[in-house]
Nucleic acid binder design. Structure first.
Lengths: 151, 151
DNA sequence: CTCAAAATTGTGTATGATTCTCAATAAGCT
DNA sequence: AGCTTATTGAGAATCATACACAATTTTGAG
């Protein structure tokens, strides 16, 4: 969970035999400039880059976010919807977790050092290399609790 | 997070204007009889019921697991694959969390009361009704760390 | 700086999980 | 027992995501 400059990204890619491309740099920048708490779907990324006049194909976007998620640069978020969302994987103390309403998908972000610690200790114990750690709470928000309509 | 008998399931369904059907009961039983640590995809459920001689259509299976997840009876697990897995949402002290290798999908289950507490406190504070709370750790397992092959 | 090897991109197409439609059936209430 | 309304099953439809491959670009060596 580090903050990536274009050069840091390049080194880390090259280390693994991968390459830094303008597309990958563009996508990283997009996420880095996103206001905290925003998360984008592949389609969102596609649209934003289109609007910015830096179009990148959807295929490349899918490939890139998957790659960056596996590198620990992006977090892959799975809420109740039918598509994934991505956000930058920020280091402590910006790291946060998600509370999600399974009915309306409203999400609340919250921080918890304790959860982070549990995550890193567990990884250590099992010999895993930590990429991301999120406490995911599925719940029903106050509004939806009051809603009379079933489903 | 309660243990459901058929009758308890019926009451809870009826409360919301829904109905208890043989299919729903069969699916609940299937999960309740599953050895701890097992989680099934929709397709897995379909196959198992087929083999048991209690076939249920895939449509119904998808509808049922979604319903039960929203009721808090099942947990919806999203690992790195392209399909969801479900498991029974067990109460403390059986409740557990997941550590997943993003490369090979190996999963390790672990318990953590602390994570549970953070979850319930957060819900309380925000006025949400807790359904499920999981600490999801994405990481790279020892074997995959050693692997030379990229991607 | 130049060049070859190998990774990456974009376009179009394929895949596969999940949802939808709708007629037939069955649960729950009076 | 009968009526209302949820549920089921079969198949078709959707939609996110992955794939194939030719053209292009990055990297590292000389």
């Amino acid at each position: 969970m580090a903050i990536y400059t274009p050069n840091a990204l390049k080194s880390e890619l090259n280390e693994r035999g991968w390459r830094l491309t303008p597309q990958r740099e563009t996508i990283l920048k997009l996420f880095q400039n996103l206001p905290e708490g925003n998360h984008l779907s592949a389609e969102d990324i596609y649209q934003k880059l289109q609007d910015q006049g830096e179009p990148i194909s959807l295929s490349t976007i899918y490939r890139t976010v998957k790659l960056m998620a596996r590198m620990g640069i992006l977090r892959e978020l799975e809420f109740a919807e039918d598509h994934k969302h991505y956000e930058i994987n920020q280091p402590y103390p910006y790291h946060h977790h998600h509370l999600i309403c399974v009915k309306c998908n409203k999400t609340v972000e919250f921080k918890s050092d304790a959860a982070l610690k549990i995550g890193s200790k567990t990884c250590e114990k099992e010999g895993f290399h930590l990429l991301d750690c999120q406490l995911l709470i599925q719940a029903i928000c106050p509004q939806c609790q009051r809603s009379i309509v079933p489903e």
